[in-house]
């Protein structure tokens, strides 16, 4: 399979504190890659550096090479807004805007210049269908999104991210704030989405990684310890630290 993201010798510092050390990874297209590891090991940091959400934090320094479709993500003159359109993001805590369901989903397309009502209607419906929430929300498009349940809000956020037609979807522990039923709906959804999108997902939950992902990367203390097919990582880890972690000996 083709790799859509390649990272070579990447290091990242928050001021003096080095949060990532020599990360090397190649993420295959149209698959689900899970990042696992104890908290504070740099999973979110690495995920956010893929669409330059770290730019928002002052004092971040990055070295090494990050490429999306062969192009340097951090090159001078890269249009960050375009990059984020291609590489979308879903956050840990559902964060719909305080506007209607419709306006939430239409926010991205409008941002990128679509204002035709019919076209927007179409995009919104498709995004909500793709996020498996159209049936629940089709009669509530004008209602404020903050009135939805947590699980619905998160699927709305997924729809909102899909509406700009990204190639990659970064998800930072998208189910950690949700109940088991909402969690399994999102897991099903993610598995369907990989037909069209590349998914990179941080998860705290190792069962979740086993259930949904094709590839798994194990992070520890800012290092990418091991990366490979999920089945291999969980059945025959090469590194002792990976084995200790997945068998629950620490973390």
């Amino acid at each position: 399979m083709r790799n859509i993201i390649t990272v070579k010798d990447m290091c990242l510092w928050y001021g003096e504190h080095q949060a990532l050390k020599n990360v090397n990874i190649e993420i295959p297209e149209k698959s689900i890659t899970a990042f696992i590891g104890p908290s504070g090991c740099g999973k979110s940091t690495f995920l956010k550096s893929l669409n330059r959400m770290n730019d928002l934090i002052p004092g971040v320094k990055i070295t090494g090479e990050l490429r999306y479709e062969g192009a340097d993500i951090y090159a001078k003159g890269v249009d960050v807004n375009n990059l984020r359109k291609e590489i979308g993001m879903v956050f840990q805590k559902p964060n719909p805007f305080p506007m209607s369901v419709y306006d939430n989903v239409a926010y991205g397309p409008r941002t990128h210049g679509i204002s035709n009502k019919l076209q927007l209607d179409e995009i919104v419906e498709k995004a909500l269908r793709d996020a498996a929430i159209w049936d629940e929300l089709k009669d509530r498009l004008k209602k404020n999104a903050l009135g939805l349940s947590g699980g619905q809000q998160q699927r709305l956020c997924i729809a909102r991210a899909l509406a700009v037609q990204p190639r990659i979807l970064l998800m930072d522990e998208p189910t950690s704030a949700l109940d088991p039923i909402s969690t399994s709906r999102i897991e099903e959804l993610v598995m369907e989405l990989k037909e069209e999108y590349t998914i990179v997902m941080v998860t705290h939950n190792m069962q979740q990684a086993v259930r949904v992902s094709d590839y798994t990367a194990f992070f520890l203390l800012g290092e990418l310890v091991e990366f490979g097919k999920t089945d291999d990582i969980f059945s025959q880890p090469k590194d002792k630290r990976t084995e200790d972690y997945i068998t629950g000996r620490f973390g």
């Binding site: 956050f91 805590k93 719909p96 805007f97 991205g108 990128h112 909102r160 991210a161 700009v164």
Partner: peptide, 21 residues
């Protein structure tokens, strides 16, 4: 909330659009 700003930036909105909307 900072999460609103992050959400909007994450969709590719520029600074002024995030501020305005």
């Amino acid at each position: 909330p900072q999460s609103y700003r992050e959400g909007a930036f994450g969709l590719g909105a520029g600074k002024w659009r995030v501020v305005r909307t």
